[in-house]
Design a protein around this nucleic acid. Structure first.
Lengths: 210, 210
DNA sequence: CATTATATCACCCATTTTGGATTATTGTTT
DNA sequence: AAACAATAATCCAAAATGGGTGATATAATG
């Protein structure tokens, strides 16, 4: 069979039953074919330049190197490859860690064969396959906290701090004295219960104040 | 007709043709009904406590208050409401601004009636309706830059800076002298071409180094 | 093998930031 | 009108940071 136009898929999954079932599903589509399957990241990485996959289906819970670590390595070696994480867990830390490591999709193991193929299709079209729940998790990280304890002015100043501005630069930009800027910043520290700019930025990020 | 089980929808869109067409589409579904339509945010906001919508379809390009600003106000007044932005543009700045302001979905005006109803369905199920292209934009913001100019140690120290740690705290945590910590930080500044912690964090965020 | 990058440590000096105490004006809400 | 939050300003002392200029050792790279 001519497979040259098909998208090249590699599967990394330690459960042999699941691995074989994924392989069957992927190969059942005329658009994809499975080059190789592995039960661990280490072996997959050794072969990655021979396999040259377009898409990697990656389990996170693996013995040895985790799927997250494996994703980083593979993305480093073949950046064009699209990695879809498959996990039993869909808690936020796991999802965000996976995305940070370079994955472009995240589906759960409960996905049936239609959903799995849909994910492959979506990533081929340049999308980012994920469940509605995960999409929402991701979107919610963008929302700015509407219950910020900071006043408008304080938020504005915190924004300038986040841009790396010094007291002097802030005072010049807002046409206030350096001491006034300082006064605002002190109030910000007091409200956020922090003691320096970086801590304030950490708090601002985690509480989504800016 | 008994509409008590239906999701309450408000439409804000200045083009009367499009507005009416949206209204027809939404009312064509047994799951939703349109309470009111408005051609500007100001009027919609005046009525928001009477309307008590579950879902708001919001155009961004409006005369007067923008859809982004309107989203902020509505989210502030009735936080439970889910807002779907409808825009002709799908460039990243526009999308991220909309999401930051509190929207939970973002679809383009090219969407047909099936896509519009699918978006309403998805948001009802707690999801985040958006096109594949936008999903990808969003996911890509999570990816850490694999071409970071920083060494492992420097990245680790930048991480500690982002947590608000001082030179002293960093040196204690890594069992190195304060001068060494400072030396690393200076190298970080030099590589990132910045002059202080906050600027380094701004650069780290924009370049996704941590 | 030479070079480069990395990681470690040190000293001096100036600037910036922070902590604490106080006061005053404006604007909003009750 | 009273109370409160936000804004603005000043003074002083201590701590942290940033810039300059080194040095040493080790690993990685060409």
């Amino acid at each position: 069979m001519n497979t040259s136009f098909k998208k090249r898929v590699v599967i990394i999954e330690d459960d042999v039953e699941i691995r074989n079932s994924y392989e069957l599903i992927v190969n059942s589509s005329p658009k994809f074919f499975v080059l190789n399957t592995y039960d661990n990241c280490e072996d997959a990485i050794k072969q990655i330049h021979n396999d040259r996959p377009d898409i990697v289906l990656m389990d996170v819970e693996l013995s040895g190197m985790s799927g997250i670590a494996g994703t980083k390595v593979i993305k480093d070696k073949i950046p064009h490859a699209e990695i879809i994480i498959i996990s039993v867990y869909d808690n936020s830390e796991m999802v965000f860690e996976a995305l940070r490591s370079g994955a472009s999709g995240y589906i759960t193991k409960s996905s049936n064969y239609i959903e799995l193929l849909a994910a492959l299709d979506e990533i081929t079209k340049g999308g980012a396959p994920m469940s509605t729940k995960i999409a929402r998790l991701v979107i919610d990280t963008f929302h700015i906290n509407p219950n910020s304890p900071l006043s408008k002015r304080e938020t504005q100043i915190l924004q300038l701090i986040s841009e790396g501005k010094t007291y002097t630069q802030i005072s010049e930009e807002l046409f206030i004295s350096k001491d006034t800027a300082k006064s605002h910043i002190r109030n910000i520290y007091s409200k956020l219960q922090v003691n320096n700019k970086s801590e304030a930025l950490a708090k601002a990020t985690s509480d989504k104040l800016i």
